[in-house]
Simulated scan of single mutants.
Amino acid sequence: MRSYCILYFISGFDLYGHGQWTVRKSGLPGRNGVPGIPGLPGKLIQSGCASLAGPKGEKGATGPSGTAKSGKPGPTGPKGEKGSDGPTGAKGARGEPGTPARAPGPYGTSGVTYVQWGKKSCSASGVQTLYSGVAAGSHYQSSGGGANTQCLPLDPEWGYYKSGVQGSGASYIYGSEYELDQGIQPFINKKLVHHDVPCAVCYAANKNTQFMLPAKMTCPTGWSRAYRGYLMAEKNNHAGRSMYLCVDHNAEGTAGGGADHNGYTLYPVEARCGSLPCRPYVDGRELTCSVCLK
């Protein structure tokens, strides 16, 4: 607590005798008197003045520890760089054998299809004939139509159709004939002139691929041969275009198909020297072929 000094001033103004105030009776106001003599300075009387400061006290004892208060989490720091890959772990134990999804089918779980031209059924061992048909394509004089030869089945199924030939509003397909009337008879059967060409679509189980190998009667090592034969296609000066087909060397004709209709015609393919190297090829010689499976 602070102490304060209280100061009193005793004025010497109008103070006479033993410190008594002179009382005057009020009368009529008089004239202004002569200015009095200045009084003596008043005496300073101290009362309750503060004492001098005492000596510095000793350091107090340490207070009890305060209770810590958790602050709010700070902001997420930036993403660190990717660390290096750790060492490869130990190899795990081998799992239990799986259960087969289903038993293999009668022809295995894989297989390929191909067409055997010139035959009514597939001749290779273990190969299934899916269906028999007739070879067909565009007319030999037509510049339009399809270029790939089709093996049409003998039991067609019809959807929507309009009776009658539609003329310019349709594309046509014709049955194929052997054209062997120029004295070229490479096949075993020598009575195939103008006969219609049969075909068979074949399924070889447990095979993954197949291809037609031109100018060869044997297949590469590790491949099996489905059949061998001779290359045939449309005549070189015909307007139509066709695929090169490998027709079986022991080709057949369809029953009653010996009439010369000249629809889609097939001729033996001969090698011509020039840009084709001779030898090994021989000018004018008919080319062989084979269909290979693996």
Rank of each mutant, 00 (worst) to 15 (best):
S3P: 04
G19D: 14
C202M: 04
L28S: 08
A53D: 06
G77T: 03
Y8E: 10
P106F: 09
S176E: 02
G30L: 06
V193N: 12
A50I: 02
Q185C: 01
P78I: 09
T218M: 09
K91H: 06
G27N: 07
P104N: 13
G83W: 05
S275Y: 14
Q150P: 00
L15T: 15
T88L: 14
G253Q: 06
R2I: 11
M243Q: 14
A61R: 11
V282I: 12
V291M: 12
K207T: 00
Y4F: 13
P198C: 08
G240P: 00
P73N: 15
G80W: 07
S110R: 09
K119C: 04
L192T: 04
G89C: 13
P38I: 09
H261V: 07
N262A: 14
C273F: 15
W223V: 00
C273Q: 14
G240N: 03
G98Y: 03
D155S: 10
P87Q: 15
L231R: 10
S143M: 10
G133M: 03
M1T: 14
G126T: 03
A205H: 12
T113M: 12
G36V: 05
V127L: 11
N148I: 03
S142Q: 06
A226S: 04
Y178C: 02
A200L: 02
G144L: 05
L231M: 15
S224I: 00
V165R: 14
V23H: 08
T67P: 07
K294N: 11
